[in-house]
């Protein structure tokens, strides 16, 4: 299953709920304001570093770029993809769940 999260973890609980309900091995795609969760050195960085042991975590490159976040500052093990990679993830997983 593919989960998409689009809200900053500092503002909303979408990511928290996603991590509570996602199954082991599921993919999590961080888009829009959720890309802030993929950055090293934040208050949620430890949570995300732990999350990538249970899930495959992806972050939307164009959304990082738009927000001035260097791709080098992304937590190791979180994969940066573009819209084409997002499409591949949707195809790869039978169901998509958007945590709105």
């Amino acid at each position: 299953m593919l989960h998409t999260v689009n809200k900053s973890p500092f503002e909303r609980t979408n990511l928290k709920s996603c991590l509570r309900l996602a199954g082991k091995g599921d993919a999590i795609m961080l888009i829009e304001d959720a890309v802030y969760a993929a950055v090293q050195g934040t208050a949620v960085a430890d949570t995300m570093a732990g999350a990538k042991d249970d899930f495959q975590v992806y972050v939307m490159g164009p959304d990082l770029d738009a927000r001035g976040i260097s791709r080098d500052s992304v937590i190791d093990g979180i994969n940066v993809v573009g819209y084409d990679g997002f499409v591949d993830l949707v195809v790869e997983h039978e169901t998509s769940q958007a945590w709105l």
Partner: peptide
């Protein structure tokens, strides 16, 4: 509980939200 709901969610074909 979250574990049971996770199982139900994994059985879904389509999940619609708002």
């Amino acid at each position: 509980d979250a574990a049971e709901l996770q199982k139900l969610m994994a059985e879904q074909d389509v999940i619609l939200t708002g």
